[in-house]
Design a protein around this nucleic acid. Structure first.
Length: 287
DNA sequence: TTCTTTGTTCCGGA
DNA sequence: GTCCGGAACAAAGA
């Protein structure tokens, strides 16, 4: 369940593996992801240099030397593995003997030294697309995204302006990518717990000091998770094979029926479906 | 077999 | 046209 921190961690690991390296060619093992992969588009690309690797919201953008970009969304279970050509032990661990592929490997980027960066996605809910650089931010995926939560654009004035006269609850608002981009279900739960706001609260009813708390909590939690390598649930790993540890810092997510983790609060964490997603909160702390 | 899980896009009603 | 909520999407593991 890669959200902003996990995608950021993957971006950093891909940078360390691929930046300024040459991709000799792509191999598509399975084109049936969220959107069907166009074989032709990928097979036409040979010997391109990786100019930059960036993240926008939960999207990864690999910018190539031929004026094209690879736009990637990890969906629920998308991950990258790095496989060294000569590391036979690793190969036999990751691949079966016959075709050097393991289950759910869908796309392979072969680098100049025959090292490989492999995209693996059990649920096939992620996608990989080639887009012209000029069209990237006009694409339906990127054009309606709100500001990045870790930038100065996400501030009190912006938030109060957005909340004014809007009829939706704060949980759905955090998850909608148009307010701020990159937050999913898990971090929305954690952010609301930290800022002591009940998920069903209407955004236009939020007092100024609560909005301040919300902004501070959002930035703190996302930063802290990135520092800890993200949250390794659903076997999340960076392309370097590193697991994150932020899941050990979850204060409310998946804690239904357990005691609130705040000192001196003995309330029991409740679960409720909001925005069609499991929502966890402390009925005493969060108002 | 049934339930649960994920984020984005699409669509209908207000 | 805008806003908002809910369905659909796909697949697999428990």
């Amino acid at each position: 369940m890669p959200e902003l921190p996990e995608v950021e961690v993957v971006k950093r690991s891909l940078k360390s593996l691929m930046l300024n390296k040459t991709i000799r060619y792509f191999v598509i093992k399975n084109s049936k992801l969220r959107y069907k992969i166009d074989h032709k588009q990928f097979s036409n690309i040979k010997n391109v240099k990786v100019k930059s690797i960036s993240r926008k919201s939960k999207y990864l953008i690999i910018s190539l030397s031929n004026n094209l970009c690879v736009l990637i969304h990890l969906g629920m279970t998308g991950k990258f593995f790095f496989v060294k050509k000569n590391d036979l032990k690793k190969l036999s661990f990751y691949y079966n003997k016959n075709d050097y592929i393991k289950k759910h490997d869908h796309l392979i980027m072969v680098l100049r030294n025959n090292n490989k960066v492999v995209y693996n996605d059990v649920r096939k809910f992620g996608f990989i697309k080639i887009i012209e650089k000029n069209h990237l931010f006009k694409s339906k995926h990127l054009k309606n995204l709100g500001p990045e939560p870790l930038t100065k654009k996400f501030n009190l004035g912006y938030s109060l302006g957005y909340f004014k006269n809007r009829n939706l609850n704060i949980k759905n608002c955090l998850m909608s990518q148009s307010f701020i981009s990159g937050i999913g279900n898990i971090y929305a739960n954690e952010i609301l717990f930290k800022s002591k706001i009940i998920p069903t609260k209407a955004v236009k009813e939020l007092k100024k000091h609560k909005v301040k708390n919300l902004i501070i909590a959002t930035k703190k939690i996302l930063k802290s998770s990135i520092e800890k390598g993200g949250s390794s649930i659903q076997n999340f790993k960076s392309a370097n094979g590193m697991e994150g540890t932020f899941q050990d810092n979850f204060k409310v997510y998946n804690r239904e029926g357990l005691k609130c983790s705040r000192i001196n609060c003995y309330a029991i964490i409740k679960k409720q479906i909001i925005g069609q997603r499991s929502t966890f909160f402390c009925p005493k702390c969060q108002k």
